[in-house]
């Protein structure tokens, strides 16, 4: 069986800076793949390249065996790829329900159907209580869940989550972990950028570690954690230890 997402040789340069260099990884259907790396490692750039928000300078992205490299973001989305943004982007002049309706409208033009689908999605992320509030009135944690609900309302096969636990209190993190696991149970494939090592070690089936735009490890969580290159990237190389 070919992987759902197959990335090979993906490269992005900004002038002299290489944001992504020759990135190779794959994601199987139903799997949770984590992406880790220090700030500036190129994690969000990788998401932008996969979802069409930026054009790669080289490499290929295959979705279910079809080449989607460089397609427009909305076309990639319509192929069943959803994403959230690290810098949250709620539709601030719409209510919470209306925000999610926009996602649900990907598959229907009937407003009642879309609304009910949106409400289910909001129930899933436990944000129903806020349904009639304006998106701008939500806290950061609530906005993250809103963005997730919006993406899930379009019933994606694959969802790319950019730091869903960042800036969220400890209690909500527990809820978010349960949420991701439930998604997996429902057969949604997940790729998630995550800073919280505890979270990612628990959730991910496989982890891709990036450093300075390059892949330094890809495999099972324990294996990646004990990889010397990963330890170096996180702790710094101890060369002049006395």
């Amino acid at each position: 069986m070919s992987p759902l997402l197959d990335v090979s040789g993906l490269t992005k340069r900004y002038g002299g800076v290489t944001a992504n260099a020759d990135i190779v990884f794959d994601v199987n259907e139903g799997e949770i793949v984590g992406i880790i790396g220090p700030n500036g490692a190129g994690k969000s750039t990788l998401f932008d390249l996969i979802t069409g928000f930026q054009q790669p300078d080289g490499g290929r992205v295959l979705l279910d065996g079809h080449d989607i490299t460089g397609l427009r973001p909305d076309r990639i989305s319509r192929l069943g790829v959803a994403r959230t943004f690290q810098k949250l982007k709620p539709f601030i002049d719409l209510t919470v329900t209306e925000n999610v309706i926009v996602g649900a409208l990907a598959h229907t033009s009937d407003m009642k159907t879309a609304r009910d689908r949106a409400l289910e999605s909001l129930a899933f992320v436990d944000l129903l209580e806020k349904r009639n509030n304006f998106a701008r009135e939500l806290s950061t944690g609530q906005r993250k869940r809103l963005e997730l609900a919006r993406a899930l309302a379009m019933s994606p096969r694959l969802i790319l989550m950019d730091e869903v636990t960042g800036g969220v209190d400890q209690r909500s993190i527990v809820g978010l972990i349960a949420l991701v696991l439930e998604l997996k149970q429902r057969g949604v494939t997940v790729v998630m950028i995550e800073h919280n090592m505890q979270v990612i070690m628990r959730l991910a089936d496989r982890i891709l570690a990036l450093h300075a735009g390059r892949p330094i490890a890809f495999g099972a969580p324990e294996q990646v954690r004990s990889e010397p290159a990963v330890v170096d990237a996180y702790l710094g190389t101890v060369t002049d230890a006395a």
Binding site: P73, D74, A82, K89, I92, D93, L94, V102, L105
Partner: peptide, 20 residues
């Protein structure tokens, strides 16, 4: 709804399948 979405956040709208 799609117009209002792309007015507020074009990138998020595109990520939801809207041809901006």
């Amino acid at each position: 709804f799609r117009l209002q979405a792309l007015r507020d956040e074009p990138d998020a709208a595109a990520s939801l399948g809207i041809a901006i």
